[in-house]
């Protein structure tokens, strides 16, 4: 029996996420140091994925029950629906800018521009189905985490808006708009860890 097989499943998942995260960060670092040709867009994507995976690994390792109380079958269905949608999103994002530069026809350009958003809706669908079929306590945890993340992100954006108006910061609007959803996901994940612990 290998050492990995003796670990609880959450810790094995944590190590997998850590490996994936470190691989992404290493590739991003190699790109940053000009060891291989990579666009700024792909570099940002790799760095973001790497940081996200390392963060997930830390959560899984130190707080194995942080996801709340969802039954295993429901979690399995969630991952079965979430992972392909997320992989499709990442795959599209890797070629999205090149595709956008290549397509000139306005109608087709609109379709290509909205393709990542459509894939994000696919990811959201998996999450909505997960919440809808959870038990009442899990739904409460998700609802509280959603409310906390909405408050934190909208508060943060409003504060940043005032700072930008006062010309103390200068964040390009497209960056600010694109980061709303990832910021919501990140704060949601952190909030859920703390809220789920209250019910343990």
């Amino acid at each position: 029996m290998s050492v990995l097989e003796t670990l609880p499943s959450c810790r094995r998942k944590s190590l997998f996420a850590l490996g994936l995260g470190l691989a992404c960060l290493a590739l991003a670092w190699a790109g940053l140091a000009n060891h291989w040709p990579i666009s700024d867009h792909s570099l940002g994507l790799l760095a973001g994925m790497g940081a996200g995976a390392v963060f997930s690994a830390a959560l899984l390792w130190f707080m194995p029950d942080s996801g709340g109380s969802a039954p295993k079958a429901l979690m399995r269905r969630y991952y079965r629906e979430f992972i392909p949608a997320m992989l499709a999103y990442v795959a599209v994002m890797l070629v999205w800018k090149r595709l956008l530069a290549w397509v000139q026809l306005p109608a087709l350009r609109l379709l290509v521009a909205l393709l990542p958003a459509l894939l994000v809706f696919w990811v959201m669908r998996a999450f909505v189905r997960f919440v809808r079929d959870s038990d009442e306590m899990q739904r409460r945890i998700e609802l509280e985490a959603g409310a906390a993340s909405a408050l934190l992100v909208s508060g943060g954006y409003m504060a940043a808006g005032f700072l930008q108006t006062a010309e103390l910061i200068d964040v390009p609007s497209k960056v600010a708009m694109l980061w709303v959803f990832p910021a919501l996901c990140l704060t949601y994940g952190i909030a859920k860890v703390f809220i789920a612990r209250r019910y343990r």
């Binding site: 109380s69 306590m137 343990r200």
Partner: peptide, 15 residues
């Protein structure tokens, strides 16, 4: 038809 964690939270009065 709830999770074991929900039963535990009910019993301990946390939920």
């Amino acid at each position: 038809e709830v999770s074991r964690q929900t039963v535990n939270a009910l019993e301990t009065g946390k939920y």
